[in-house]
């Protein structure tokens, strides 16, 4: 096995803004090959923004994002495409193409990016439907699927190319506990059997604790900590404990900032 010692993902000093609002504050984040990393944080913590930068959907304003050895902020479109072929993304809402059958959705990356014969494509894509317990569902249209099935079909599409890096945004949200546990098990097996490095964004604690090698906790654009499940659980940081114990957070109010947000034309 040709293991590289350098991280597969290396984010240094990443800043992100929506308008004047700063979403990420100098975030450092790195993931090693073969690791399952969970990014946790409440709504508005910057989880999705970080993910969008890592998969190259947003270019960093400041800081660097290095994926599979490529600096995504400074590489050309061709290099970015080459990186994207080596990663799979399962979006929170599924993002299936509604006019295509489930089977065609899953096969799409293979048809777009490989020269494989149609028989191999058919078998590979249906294998992935078997992985996610949707065997035999390839002829259905996305509109005929339940929310949980859409999520699993989206995962099948994300892994159809056997990516080195898999990103999974909110795998458990809205799923029943059995399907959710099955997905957790699948994530572990994808890493072990197909050697994927996996980044999961979730706020489901139970799932995070079950699958993570390490957890990164984001809060209001800052990395509060990165550590093993035991380390995160034992953390004395109040915000982390708020998150773990589902305590409502107390929001500090900056009067000037508040008034500016309400009154300024271009705030």
């Amino acid at each position: 096995m040709n293991e590289s010692a350098s991280p597969l993902i290396e984010v240094v000093g990443l800043e992100a803004f929506y308008g004047r609002r700063r979403i990420l504050h100098g975030v450092d984040f790195s993931v090693n090959r073969g690791e399952i990393r969970v990014i946790m944080g409440g709504s508005g913590s910057g989880k999705s923004t970080l993910l969008r930068h890592i998969i190259g959907l947003q270019r960093p304003v400041s800081g660097t994002v290095n994926i599979l050895g490529v600096d995504v902020g400074r590489s050309d479109a061709q290099a970015l495409l080459a990186v994207r072929r080596r990663l799979g993304v399962s979006f929170q809402g599924g993002a299936l193409i509604t006019s295509m059958s489930v089977g065609d959705n899953v096969a799409l990356p293979l048809r777009e990016h490989t020269q494989l014969d149609e028989t191999t494509i058919r078998i590979m894509s249906r294998l992935k439907l078997e992985f996610v317990n949707l065997g035999g569902f390839h002829d259905l249209m996305p509109s005929q699927l339940s929310g949980g099935m859409i999520k699993r079909a989206a995962l099948a599409r994300a892994i159809v190319m056997d990516p080195e890096l898999l990103f999974f945004d909110e795998p458990s949200a809205g799923l029943d506990p059995v399907v959710s546990a099955e997905l957790d098990e699948l994530i572990l097996r994808l890493r072990d059997a197909l050697r994927m490095t996996i980044v999961v964004v979730t706020h489901e604690l139970e799932s995070a604790f079950r699958i993570a090698d390490r957890i990164t906790v984001l809060d209001q654009g800052d990395v509060l900590t990165t550590g093993t499940v035991a380390e995160v659980r034992a953390s004395e940081n109040e915000r982390i404990q708020d998150l773990l114990n589902r305590r409502p957070r107390s929001v500090e109010v900056d009067v000037d900032e508040y008034l500016r947000r309400l009154t300024e034309e271009d705030a």
Partner: peptide
């Protein structure tokens, strides 16, 4: 075989 991906498995299935 030290590793097989799903394209390899597909060849066996076929």
């Amino acid at each position: 075989v030290s590793y097989i991906d799903s394209s390899g498995i597909a060849a066996l299935v076929e």
